[in-house]
Design a protein around this nucleic acid. Structure first.
Lengths: 228, 228, 228, 228
DNA sequence: CATGAATGAGCATTCATTCAT
DNA sequence: AATGAATGAATGCTCATTCAT
């Protein structure tokens, strides 16, 4: 997606718009190296953590030479950031589609919860990177330099705001704050599962069960309601 | 000659010079060095992040020699972990007191929220370390090696369970899961504030306001209720 | 797969694509690429210094692909050496012509001085490469691998020897040594000017003035004095 | 001489004036590591050239760990510069003493020549570093950042100026320019000897012979001639 | 107990060179 | 001939940890 022309000081957010660069013939970039590197990076970052991950290991896993990574990314930092942007973009695309597929705000929230936990379950490495490393790098990356995460929150906040306008959700709570809280809760559950989920496949840590409970929690709250 | 086994996670078991530390009151150290080191560590870890923090900087801030740190802590890792345990213990003590001071489950939950956000507001460095570094180091530290955090969650889950037994809270949600979700939400809000709060002192990021909203959210849920 | 024997001084023997180069007039290359590369090399070497100059930058300045340089030169080292030989050949040609144009040994020496300093003034990059990089690479390049510089000295020494035989210059000094000394002095003056000349265009650093003074210095020391 | 207190961001030209820093006891720096590193550096730089010299090799030759070098010098560059300053200081001290020991300007100049060539002969590595590397690094180091070399020239120029004032030397030549020329000639002769001297111990390259000839060359050019 | 100079393994990054196209 | 993406060896520098004093 990010269209790099190696050796040209790979600058993040390059994204040369005019596609097909040279005359017309082959695009030697073809082999999808950038993608292979990103895939390798998720795995290695997830397994080792950003700081303990070695660039050479990523290169090895990606099946390229160490130096090749620097044709596509400015630095190890840039690799992490590019990874976030790339993956979050996918997450956001999925989220948008999911939100559009539902009609009521409540359904949308339940969907968000389910979607996120399914993602975690189906793509552990990616989830670990997003949950752990994203936060680790937060202070200097997140909203500041990570518009994709901001967009993620905005999508959720938007769904909430719509629900409020439609009278479906109570209007006295700040959508931004709610979106954040929802994400925080989801992320924490995800992390717990990531940390000890795969080993103890007990009921309590079952993610789809957690999704249902979180849905209840956010939609209805904790308070016991005599009859509703 | 130099007997290094570097880069290999030293296993925890600090051995403070003054032997049996926490237990009794005696701490025959040289004037509370351990405490000074911990205080320095919070500040430095908060400012630089664990991996970018230099042991020598911590020593400098603490006003001790580099080597002295290793008289109190086995390694940099151990320093971080000890820091968590030490600080979380205080947090848990506060939490216990706060919970005991309230009578209803709802009040307790609101109190938890308020307590946590007040902590964040009043002690930024400590909050940053807990929010950011705790997670960063999560995969290999948290539950596994951080009983104090587990206890934190247990305290909250306990309050919820009590509320459920008393019929005050709905009984169909897992207290553990709820405790986690609550902490996740709190932590996320805290992080957002830590990242950009101090500069933009706008209403929306006001933590006491956030505390109220979070209280509503968890107690009552999002769904609009015609009249209650 | 990649057959590297890197970092090992490639032995000289460029093999320009158009085969037998210098000899005849024919140079069937694609539009004087070799020359363009050499021109780019002087500029880049002068600006960055040999070790800091990047082959890719030279290629860029020359308007050719990185790989193309290796069609004309065996290695970066070879490029530097070829550059010396090429430029020194011109210098020697000029020198020969200048010497032939004068009749007395004294005039010849003055001419040598003037010629060199004029060259420096009119072609800074080339002068920098000769002054700085030539010496830098001296130990393994100069006499040993740089017959063109040896020839340069020989031309001057020859003029001196002739003057001695003709009774115009005192015969007790070694022409080789004198030639070297003259070049050393010239080169040092040139370097001083190169380093801070262009900025401070004050009288003292004026090169034509320096030429006159150097003439006096060397001539009056060399000239045979019938009666003293 | 340069009084470093390791780990404190070794800054060039530190030279803490108050000597004996800590209370009174031992100065653990004692082993003369800084000097050993400088000695190793001269040898290695001389043999390999600055750019080809490896810091680890210098450390090895000095008998210290790689990291130790960075306790005394900020970087490889700083090591080179410190080396110049340190060695040039000695050279200047010798020069001052030599100039003071002579009474006439002519004797002083002859002495300068002899002194320099003797230095070259007796301390090849140091001479190579000064002759070759000094120039190599010229553009950004020499007068600009190398006051010691400027001082060297000033000493010589001073001797010449004195001679001019005393009527011993012709007054129409710029002392600065002459000092430069003298150094240039000396340096060039030295370089020639360094490059092929040790192997071919023929008469022509004999440095003491060269010294005499250079003396004649410069003196007879400089000396004021009452009647000519 | 304390010190801080010394250690040295470890790693991100560069860049000359190659070779498939 | 020309290209330029890919290579991967090579190295300056950092910093947690130790240990002689």
């Amino acid at each position: 997606m990010n269209n790099h022309s190696p050796r040209k000081k790979a600058s993040r957010s390059a994204k040369s718009p005019g596609a097909g660069k040279r005359a017309s013939a082959a695009e030697p970039n073809g082999s999808g190296k950038r993608e292979r590197i990103l895939d390798a990076a998720v795995r290695v970052f997830a397994q080792e953590g950003f700081y303990n991950a070695k660039v050479s290991q990523i290169a090895h896993v990606a099946g390229v030479a160490d130096g090749t990574i620097y044709l596509y990314f400015k630095s190890k930092d840039d690799l992490l950031i590019s990874l976030f942007e790339d993956r979050m973009e996918r997450v956001n695309d999925n989220l948008r589609a999911a939100l559009a597929a539902e009609t009521s705000a409540c359904d949308r929230l339940r969907r968000v919860v389910r979607l996120h936990l399914e993602l975690v379950e189906s793509n552990r490495p990616m989830a670990e990177v997003i949950s752990v490393e994203l936060r680790q790098s937060s202070k200097f990356i997140r909203e500041y330099a990570n518009p994709k995460f901001a967009e993620f929150l905005r999508l959720i906040a938007g769904a909430i705001a719509e629900g409020q306008e439609a009278g479906e959700l109570r209007p006295d709570l700040d959508p931004q704050l709610l979106a954040r809280s929802l994400f925080g809760a989801l992320d924490e559950i995800a992390l717990a599962w990531l940390v000890k989920g795969p080993k103890h496949t007990n009921d309590k840590m079952d993610l789809s069960h957690a999704a249902k409970q979180l849905g209840h929690l956010f939609i209805d709250g904790l308070k016991a309601r005599p009859k509703e």
